[in-house]
């Protein structure tokens, strides 16, 4: 196994780069980061729409979210893979397809988490802000969201971890990420699949495990600083 790491370790980390396209863990992290960063604002919009005073907005949000949560991510990826080129008229890279599908999928799940955080806030918070003359926008921006988002940090953390794991599905549309790179290595070696896939699993495990721990440590520290522990 150590031999594989010496010979092919770079393939796991960056794919063919610099002699070919970037891949491996680096690509996985880039896709995941884009997925998280881009889905976050969309999730907030969907969550706010879901609790807005307008019924049509609420229904629209609910419909989209339930639709996305009702189909497998793989299906969504294929939809984007085949539909985006037809709609836009351009051929689109697997990378873009994967990012778009991930953003839609994660936004749906994240919005549900954020909504539960907003709904769990005591009504007195809104009333206190309104009593001080705060507008709806100000109340949401300065009172509701900061508390709600903080309270659902654990849920969001595990959703972020899910995003990292789900980038592996890029493999089926040949996006050059970690799982794809590992399969390339496996095809070059042919005889050591157990070792290759152990390395692959261990890599994901390390990244996700360390990230989970780090995020929860940060959360605990903030909580303690605010006297909430």
């Amino acid at each position: 196994m150590i031999e594989i790491l010496q010979d092919y370790g770079l393939n796991f980390l960056v794919g063919q780069y610099p002699h070919g396209p970037l891949g491996g863990l680096a690509m996985t992290l880039i896709v995941a980061a884009l997925g998280i960063v881009l889905s976050f604002p969309i999730a907030i919009i969907f969550a706010l729409a879901r609790i807005s005073p307008y019924r049509s907005l609420r229904w629209l949000s609910k419909g989209v979210v339930n639709f996305v949560r009702g189909i497998p991510l793989l299906m969504l990826i294929f939809w984007c893979y085949f539909v985006i080129p037809i709609v836009t008229g351009y051929s689109v890279s697997g990378f873009t397809t994967l990012v778009v599908a991930l953003v839609i999928y994660e936004a749906a799940y994240l919005s549900e988490i954020i909504r539960s955080g907003i709904e769990a806030l005591p009504k007195g918070q809104t009333e206190a802000s309104q009593a001080l003359g705060g507008s709806y926008a100000l109340t949401v921006r300065s009172v509701i969201l900061p508390q709600a988002l903080f309270n659902v940090l654990p849920g969001m953390t595990s959703q972020f971890i899910s995003t990292i794991k789900e980038t592996s599905l890029g493999y089926v549309i040949a996006v050059n990420e970690l799982t794809f790179s590992a399969n390339q290595v496996n095809n070059m070696l042919l005889t050591q699949p157990l070792q290759v896939f152990t390395i692959l699993a261990a890599t994901y495990f390390l990244v996700c495990f360390v990230l989970t721990r780090t995020l929860s440590t940060i959360e605990t520290r903030i909580r303690r600083n605010r006297g909430m522990a």
């Binding site: 980038t167 599905l169 493999y171 799982t179 157990l194 290759v196 692959l200 699993a201 994901y204």
Partner: peptide
């Protein structure tokens, strides 16, 4: 529990299908 929560399902499936038969 930690292993199965932190490794993508696709990789778990591949591990079983490609890796395990070796044993």
């Amino acid at each position: 529990v930690a292993y199965h929560r932190n490794v993508p399902l696709l990789v778990q499936v591949m591990f079983w299908y490609f890796g395990m038969p070796e044993l």
